[in-house]
């Protein structure tokens, strides 16, 4: 009996002392935080992807509160939550936000195993950045995808995967939040976060090769050789520019007329999520049959017309 009593007293005393210690500690070391930070954090996706440019969601929340105190939320965007989340944030902070168009990550390389044969075998740690240290990589293209999946590792949303047949990453547009983590992880800046476009339809140059046409053409069947035909056909809208032997389509100016796709001698320009073309009698190009969901369906027939390599060496 005595023993039980002693045990109860001892344990009770220990509990009491600990409780008091904890109480004083929590009082003494309490950190005062702007409660709005917590509120803002609560509506954020909490993926801590860093797509906003801040270290994690709480960092972004802190930046929002600070910006709100200064009077404007301009320049702050959670790419994952997009417009709805930013509206909620603005509500909490008593601000308004302007509308922004949704974006998606696009892999600008079509150098599949078939288009771009492997010349050597890389044996080492499976990381694009490690492969970058051996120079050009396994293929003859100095700008194309390494296919080791640094972007896949960087994605927090399971939205990008390497296709085992093409060895190229493919973006799942449903899941992609345009946070830009993959674009940042890519050592060759192949991935671009682009405007999704009306009805998710867009025109993209699926190539990143800045070499001269002759070299680009030699090592990859699907490369842009910088011939400038697309630029000429787009004179009206001026959406296409060719810099350093590489064509680029400005998504804001592009009117989705698909003329560039037609004239590209190497089939480097792809129309994504567009309905299949009606075959035209005079159309020199085979009709594109890109499936509407898969953005860069590897089975899409390439226009493998023999190219005039000299045509671009002006």
């Amino acid at each position: 009996m005595n023993l039980i009593l002693l045990a109860i007293i001892a344990l009770g005393a220990i509990g009491l002392i600990s409780a008091l210690l904890l109480y004083f500690a929590s009082r003494k070391f309490a950190v005062h935080e702007d409660e709005r930070i917590g509120q803002v954090s609560a509506v954020l996706p909490q993926a801590n992807c860093g797509g906003c440019g801040f270290p994690g969601c709480s960092g972004f929340a802190g930046a929002c509160v600070k910006a709100a105190d200064k009077g404007s939320l301009e320049g702050l965007l959670c790419p994952v939550g997009g417009q709805p989340v930013m509206e909620q944030v603005a509500d909490i902070l008593g601000m308004t936000v302007e509308a922004s168009a949704p974006k998606v990550a696009v892999v600008r390389c079509n150098g599949s195993c078939e288009n771009r044969p492997r010349l050597v075998t890389f044996d080492g740690a499976q990381s694009c950045k490690v492969q970058q240290m051996i120079g050009m990589g396994e293929t003859g293209c100095s700008y194309g995808c390494y296919g080791c999946g640094d972007c896949v590792a960087a994605c927090q949303f399971d939205a990008i995967h390497i296709n085992p047949t093409t060895l190229l990453p493919e973006v799942d547009e449903e899941k992609c939040t345009a946070c830009g983590a993959c674009a940042k992880a890519c050592p060759r800046q192949i991935i671009e976060v682009r405007l999704k476009g009306p009805k998710n339809r867009r025109m993209v140059v699926l190539c990143n090769n800045k070499d001269k046409g002759a070299i680009a053409n030699k090592w990859c069947k699907a490369s842009c050789i910088g011939c400038g035909k697309c630029q000429k056909v787009c004179e009206k809208f001026e959406a296409i520019t060719v810099t350093k032997n590489l064509a680029y389509i400005d998504a804001e100016k592009c009117k989705l007329c698909r003329k560039c796709e037609e004239v590209c001698p190497k089939g480097a320009i792809h129309a994504i999520n567009m309905p299949p073309r009606k075959p035209k009698a005079e159309a020199p190009v085979a009709p594109k049959t890109d499936a509407p969901v898969a953005p860069k369906a590897p089975e899409a027939p390439k226009t493998e017309t023999p190219t005039n390599a000299n045509g671009n060496e002006k």
Partner: peptide, 8 residues
């Protein structure tokens, strides 16, 4: 035969 490349 494809050459093997790896880092030292």
């Amino acid at each position: 035969n494809k050459l093997i490349v790896s880092l030292s």
